[in-house]
Amino acid sequence: MSEVTITIDGLEIKAREGTTVLQAAQENGLYIPNLCNHPDLDPAGLCRVCVVKMDDWKIAISCKLPVKDGMVISTEDPEVQQIRKNTVELLVANHPMTCLTCERDSTCELQKVAHYVGIKPDDIKRYRRSVRSIPMDTSNPFFDMDHSKCILCGICVRTCDELQNINAINYAQRGVASLISTLGNKPIAESRCESCGECVVRCPVAALSPKNTMEPMRQVKSICTYCGVGCGVMLGVRGDQIVSVEGDYDNPVNQGSLCVKGRYGYKFINHPERLKTPLVRKNGELVEATWDEALDQIEAKFSKHKGEKFAALASARITNEDNYLIQKFTRAVMGTNNIDHCARL
């Protein structure tokens, strides 16, 4: 792919041909404010915040503007500033001012853009403020949909379409009544939504936010324990609990994507029904025991049943190292090849 040179605010940068001005800026470490753009998705050009002036005459949106050699871009032209500022002001004037208690405080894209554009309280006072009061959709067990915070960037719609090909959500209604909704405006849990949560991950504000998740204190890179695809996960840890799971963007298998089980199916780890001690059968009942008691019983029986009287069934659920040792134990200690596992189920 060949390179072109473009100028952004007087700075000459190299850009790959076929990219957009916004992409080129980002790849060169330059920030152009934007809301509806997402690197995984086709540019939509709806928020109009990434507006720039091209070659000193034309207003264009940088997320859809292809780079051309010799192109001169201004992000600080007065007309650009005015459009951008008014656009962001309009969004803020229609957005709840509950930042401190908001899930996305400090990670909110609208906050970031408003700050960059430099919106002051007096700017907003000029406007007629209104925040839509559509009841929250709390039907999904893993995430909520708060229309009052929705900026209609459409990232969720495009994620569900372009990446997941599920198309559970789309725009409904017209004009200011527009909202993200499901077929027949049913609660999201009754739609064809598969709860993969990919839209929740990409929502730039808190219109889609996970339920009951705590911010993790640290993240641990691991692999999902469900199917054989082996998606990379980041386990969020707080104290002795797993409190969140995120897709691992560096993993070549899933590149950050997860399914409903992988993303939300972690509550079994700290489930109260987890076995916590060995159990041994006494008078027909399984009762709690120490490791020594359990191992004593095992040693007594296994020693008697070496060879063809013994079999082990390893597991497709445990690690390579676990499996290796079990077959080694079966073969080397118990003296039999009676080792198999549930590969066939």
Partner: peptide
């Protein structure tokens, strides 16, 4: 299953 490949690779057969 998540490690059915690995179980086979490890000779749990």
């Amino acid at each position: 299953q998540n490690n059915v490949q690995g179980s086979c690779d490890m000779g749990a057969l």
